[in-house]
């Protein structure tokens, strides 16, 4: 019989990482204040990790803990995403008052700097975007 624990843990890990990227960006962009979602993520992570201790199987306990720990990481990631937006490394949401303030300060951008294709890695060195266009970088 196949052992499906690994498959469940793989799904939990990948979906947690996916949410950590896509969901955290969305949450940060739509929260005027990131502290309430941070508190919710920390509490949810704590509940899941405590639940992991009382889980009936390794697979269920592992899924609870993987998701719980990734929610803690996401709480920390909200701060890092806020910093990325402030420095223009991620697009700002002009409808979010916090982002609107960053845009007014002049460093934030509406453009996603990562939304581009990289150059061919087999070619010799080309100037970085920062060297070609410091404002964009």
């Amino acid at each position: 019989m196949l052992q499906t624990s690994g498959l469940w843990l793989a799904l939990a890990t990948f979906l947690s990482i996916w949410w950590g990227h896509v969901g955290v960006r969305w949450l940060e962009a739509h929260s005027a204040d990131i502290r309430p979602p941070m508190v919710i993520l920390i509490i949810a992570g704590l509940i899941l990790n405590v639940a992991a201790l009382f889980a009936p199987s390794i697979a269920i306990g592992g899924v609870c803990s993987v998701v719980g720990i990734s929610l803690w990481w996401d709480a920390f990631e909200l701060v890092r995403q806020d910093r990325r937006v402030r420095h223009g490394h991620a697009p700002a949401n002009p409808n979010n008052p916090r982002h609107a303030r960053y845009l007014a300060e002049g460093k934030a951008t509406l453009h996603d700097p990562l939304d581009r294709e990289p150059s061919d890695p087999s070619e010799a060195e080309q100037p970085t975007v920062r060297e070609r266009n410091p404002e964009l970088a």
Binding site: L2, Q3, S5, L9, A10, I17, I58, G62
Partner: peptide
Amino acid sequence: MIALSLFVADAGWSALLGVTGASFIW
């Protein structure tokens, strides 16, 4: 790694293989 995890008898080792496989996919 995730495919291999299906054939490991021990649930703990299978789980570790699954987590590792998913992190490589990411």
